[in-house]
Design a protein around this nucleic acid. Structure first.
Length: 582
RNA sequence: UCGGGGAUCGUCUAACGGCAGGACGCCAGACUCUGGAUCUGGCUAUCUAGGUUCGAAUCCUAGUCCCCGAGCCA
């Protein structure tokens, strides 16, 4: 029985009384953390825990990476002697760029993790890796193969057939060394030779059939420039990079599970001092989106979205622009757990986690998306009153603000119905509604244009309802948000929804490519929206709630005079649900 | 036909031979100056078949289904 559970080391999460409801405070199931604890208790690595997050700088980070980042940094943070490195796995110059290095740094930092001085590049180890390769050759454990790509592929065999040994497999150490040096020296063309490990062409594990260590690639590397023309393969560079950095637990995804014997082979035969342990977990899948680098790239390059940071993208850059908070993302990663079962997490859980965080922290304001003029006939022309409204109804520490009110205000078109359906709480001809924090109005007349479209409502206000409370305590079921016409800020508002119209866009059962399953309604742009004046002060990235509508952020596309808002996510709408049922 | 993994409510995940629990979701209700939030109640699961055992999600045997693997990608 384990009882020396690491004391509440995460001091950030003060445990509230058992009765208190602490949303998201449940201990996240995490078998990787349990294995690390086991190693710790067994006295391995002198009590050290060292993890790493090893992205290849060839694309933008997405929410699946967030799971890995939270896992790796989280495990390190749990233990006193824990560290987590950021390592760029840059062994393929053909696809990697500095732009991605920069975006990855920014995204990890934004998510809330700090790697301090522990930033590394696999390319930092090229000299060392090469020296080890020569050593392997001298030990008779590696050889230069001069077969063509095609011949090597054929020789590898298949799932059902063993491989065949290369005719070059038994070259002498001296010959191998000379050839390897020529490869490195730049005298040999791409594809003419490779360095392979001499393991076992008869292995049932294809990874062990003399895997490639180095290939010739006359390509410019984003960091080493033209210093190298041979580059190490992942299977070789990764375990050795881990060992060089003294990583204790090398956490990766399931598809590397059958690379583990090879991982161990390299660490052992390179006689590395540190012996990291590879542990595999299931990568994240989410409903209504795609999470593979390839598909994300296609969405960007095919022009299906506006870029890597399109607010509908599951990239960290996209989520950030959309208005997701790092706190919500971390809470989400905590809740989904870590296991070896590949599943699909319902995006509703992500959305729930987001709303939970935003509800607690986002200040409230008012804005009208589809304005309808409402004129208060018994309100004096030119008279302006400022109502004091709470910035957060559940947290007085957010204070109040003064919101100007005048004779003409805008309300949401959806909040008026000439012929109300059943269970309608909002405004209707002859009916009353409360204008949030201001007063109660009654609709006396519906003004239409020649075409019969409603252009404005003529109303009167109850002078005893100043501030919104009914003087006689009569029940006013509906409350509308509003914006004073003469004080309103004009804005563009972008409404986002799930990018895809189906749960699993990658599933072939749909009979069409996932790009055909993009929901055209996933982006709706509204112009002529009206905002209360206090919103002019909002900066990009500061979340706020537009009451009754949802959570929003200012998009960098806007200007102070003409703000652009992104709707991060709508409020839960139980009326839409009953209305939908009819 | 080979190798490596995995199967528990609709979804994610606990239970490590001893009452199948939580979260999301869904349904119903209460409350509310956001049809939000909050609160209450309810819903649904151990892949199959055998076996061991007083007792099996857990151990054994045999199946079934799903994922990954034949890049000079990572």
């Amino acid at each position: 029985m384990s009882d020396e559970r690491p004391a509440p080391s995460e001091a950030s999460e003060p445990d509230t009384a058992p009765s208190g409801s602490v949303p998201g405070a449940e201990r996240a199931p995490n078998f990787v953390a349990d294995l690390v604890d086991d190693d710790l208790r067994a006295g391995k690595h002198d009590g050290r825990v060292a993890t790493r997050f090893p992205p290849e700088p060839n694309g933008y980070l997405h929410i699946g990476h967030a799971k890995s980042i939270c896992l790796n940094f989280g495990i390190a943070a749990k233990s006193a002697k824990g560290t987590c490195n950021l390592r760029f796995d840059d062994t393929n110059p053909a696809t990697e760029e500095t732009e991605y290095v920069d975006s990855i740094r920014a995204d990890v930092r934004w998510l809330g993790f700090d790697w301090g001085e522990r930033e590394h590049f696999a390319s930092d180890y090229f000299d060392r890796l090469y020296a080890i390769a020569e050593q392997l050759v001298e030990d008779g454990l590696a050889y230069v193969d001069s077969q063509s790509t095609e011949e090597i592929r054929k020789g590898r065999g298949s799932f059902y057939e063993k491989g065949k040994e290369s005719p070059f497999r038994d070259r002498s150490v001296a010959e191998n060394l000379a050839l390897l040096r020529k490869m490195r020296g730049g005298e040999l063309p791409d594809g003419s030779h490779v360095l392979r490990a001499k393991i076992d062409m008869g292995s049932a594990d294809i990874n062990m059939r003399d895997p490639l260590l180095y290939r010739i690639k006359h390509a410019h590397h984003h960091r080493t420039g033209d210093r190298w023309c041979i580059y190490p393969m992942y299977d070789y560079a990764h375990p050795l990079s881990d060992a060089i950095e003294g990583i204790t637990h090398s956490i990766c995804t399931l598809e590397f599970e059958d690379h583990r014997p090879l991982y161990d082979w390299f660490v052992a035969n390179a006689r590395m001092e540190h012996r990291p342990r590879q542990i595999e977990f299931a990568r994240l899948n989410l409903t209504y989106t795609v999470l593979s680098k390839r598909r994300l790239q296609e969405l960007v390059e095919g022009g299906h979205v506006r870029g890597w940071d399109d607010p509908r993208m599951p990239t960290l850059a996209g989520l950030r622009r959309r208005g997701y908070t790092p706190e919500a993302l971390r809470a989400f990663c905590d809740r989904i757990g870590v296991s070896k079962k590949d599943g699909v997490v319902d995006v509703a859980l992500l959305e729930h986690t987001l709303r939970e965080d935003l509800n607690a922290r986002a200040p409230r304001a008012m804005g009208v998306l589809r304005p309808l003029r409402l004129v208060i006939d018994n309100w004096p022309e030119g008279h302006v009153e400022r109502f004091s409204i709470a910035n957060h109804p559940e947290d007085p520490s957010y204070g109040t603000r003064e919101v100007p009110f005048s004779r003409v205000v805008y309300i949401e078109r959806d909040d008026f119905a000439e012929v109300p359906p059943k269970k309608w709480f909002r405004l209707q001809p002859g009916g009353e509604i409360r204008l949030r924090g201001a007063c109660i109005v009654r609709c006396n007349e519906v003004v239409k244009d020649a075409a019969g479209a409603i252009v404005e409502l003529r109303c009167t206000w109850d002078e005893g309802s100043r501030g919104g409370a009914a003087p006689d305590n009569r029940r006013i079921k509906g409350t509308s948000h509003w914006v004073s016409a003469e004080h309103a800020l004009d804005a563009e508002v972008r409404l986002y929804d799930r990018l895809f119209s189906v749960e699993n866009p990658s599933d072939e059962k749909h009979g069409k490519p996932y790009t055909d399953l993009i929901d055209p309604a996933s982006l709706e742009v509204l112009t002529g929206c009206k905002l209360e004046p206090s919103l002019a002060a909002k900066k990009a990235g500061e979340p706020f709630q537009l009451e009754r509508l949802g959570y929003f952020v200012v998009d960098p596309d806007g200007t102070p005079e003409r703000p652009v808002l992104n709707r991060t996510i709508g409020l839960k709408d139980s009326y839409a649900k009953i209305a939908g049922k009819t």
